[in-house]
């Protein structure tokens, strides 16, 4: 949609709009730079050795984050297993099975779910869900479940889009040959949208990793005591949320910034993975 620049003012207007793009890049650089600046004192010393190890005892100079990385990945993994099964099922229901009215009603409620504040999910998990699930006290498992519930709306919408991108000719062909709706899903929809669905799950994994507040509320507190999924733990994000403001030594604060950088790195890995997967799908859809 490149219009010929017949007006002199267009040049000015385009430059004006481009300023916003420059501003966004500046914002991005500023956020990254601030995180690096915060972590600088420990980064220049020995960044890798500083965070290596399993024990986090700031008073004694131990800043091992292995356990928190483990907690982050496990809690997000639990959440994504739950969210994938329920979310893909709901997306199938919405795109292939339900009647128009039901689809509208469920979509509206899912929209509502997506704007419920994260801290409200956390409060619900802490006061209502945890006592109810007595066999499952605060810990990685509870945090994972909350994360799963929180990413569900995003997952359903993204996965639903992938299912909608399946060419209608294929679906019509299957139906014309007498496939039931279940067979249509199994033979056409899922194989076709598979990679896109996996990409959407990766994207939500990246979102779940960084959720701090709700996780901090339900995960209890522990700094590497137990590997159990049912014992109190911590994630990278919940560790920062709990300790950052009360961090009284420059060393602890810059260590927490370094933990933040690690979190940003893990997020970036999942972000790129999801984009590559979705890109592959969109290229194929474009070719069909």
């Amino acid at each position: 949609m490149k219009a010929p620049r017949v007006h002199a003012s267009d040049r000015l207007f385009v430059a004006f709009l481009f300023m916003f793009a420059v501003f966004l890049v500046a914002l991005f650089v500023a956020v990254g730079f601030a995180l690096f600046r915060g972590a600088w004192p420990t980064l220049i010393a020995n960044p890798v050795a500083h965070l290596a190890g399993e024990r986090w005892v700031p008073a004694q100079g131990w800043f091992g984050v292995a356990y928190f990385l483990y907690g982050t990945l496990i809690s997000s993994f639990v959440g994504m297993v739950f969210a994938s099964v329920v979310g893909v099922g709901t997306a199938l229901l919405l795109t292939q099975f339900a009647h128009t009215f039901a689809v509208k009603a469920i979509r509206a409620l899912i929209d509502v779910m997506s704007v419920i504040p994260s801290v409200v999910y956390g409060v619900w998990g802490l006061f209502a869900l945890a006592p109810w699930l007595r066999f499952m006290p605060a810990g990685l498992m509870a945090a994972g479940l909350i994360l799963g519930v929180m990413v569900l709306p995003t997952l359903i919408v993204t996965v639903g889009k992938m299912m909608d991108s399946v060419p209608q000719e294929l679906v019509d062909g299957a139906l014309a040959l007498g496939a039931t709706r279940t067979e249509k899903v199994r033979i056409i929809i899922l194989p076709y949208a598979r990679i896109g669905i996996i990409g959407a799950i990766f994207l939500c994994f990246g979102r779940a990793l960084g959720e701090a507040v709700a996780v901090a509320l339900v995960i209890g507190s522990a700094h590497g005591a137990s590997r159990s999924w049912f014992a109190p733990g911590n994630t990278l994000a919940s560790l920062i949320a709990k300790q950052f403001f009360s961090a009284d030594t420059p060393l602890l604060r810059s260590s927490l910034y370094e933990v933040g950088l690690l979190l940003a790195f893990v997020y970036t890995v999942f972000y790129i993975a999801s984009k590559l997967l979705v890109w592959r799908v969109s290229r194929r859809v474009g070719a069909v």
Binding site: L24, A30, V31, L35, G210, A212, A237, A264, T268, K275
Partner: peptide, 22 residues
């Protein structure tokens, strides 16, 4: 630019808080 915007909108919001703190 769209990629940068998408990346930023999914970045853990905690990190944005830390950056503004700095």
């Amino acid at each position: 630019i769209r990629h940068v915007a998408n990346f930023l909108s999914g970045l853990p919001s905690l990190l944005i808080g830390m950056a503004v703190y700095e």
